[in-house]
């Protein structure tokens, strides 16, 4: 139920509060973005037709590097 899928915002219709979101696998859907502040090109997590949060792309890209750093530090301790 709490499944949420990341997708890229392609267009936003400010009047209706909906955006076209591309999931990168050939599918795209209209999503309600009234619960988030998002710009075209950013990634959102979509749950039950609503964007619930904007994904921090920099954090996402650095996640594995951060894990490696934490593990290394613990390994040395």
């Amino acid at each position: 139920m709490c499944l949420a899928i990341p997708g890229k915002v392609v267009t936003i219709d400010a009047k209706t509060g909906h955006a076209q979101v591309d999931y990168g696998d050939g599918t795209s859907r209209t999503v309600n973005v009234s619960l988030v502040d998002v710009k075209v090109g950013e990634y959102v997590l979509v749950h039950a037709g609503f964007a619930i949060q904007v994904v921090d792309r920099k954090e996402a890209e650095e996640t594995i590097a951060l894990f490696k750093e934490m593990l290394e530090m613990a390994g040395e301790a």
């Binding site: 139920m1 709490c2 949420a4 309600n32 619960l35 749950h47 039950a48 037709g49 609503f50 619930i52």
Partner: peptide, 30 residues
């Protein structure tokens, strides 16, 4: 999505449309 239910209610104004709203804090904001 709950928006599907709202559209259903708009399309059938003569019907009573009830959404069984389940879910935790992820779903409740919608």
């Amino acid at each position: 999505s709950i928006e599907d239910v709202v559209n259903l209610a708009k399309q059938h104004p003569q019907k009573q449309v009830v959404f069984l709203a389940v879910g935790f804090e992820t779903t409740a904001p919608s």
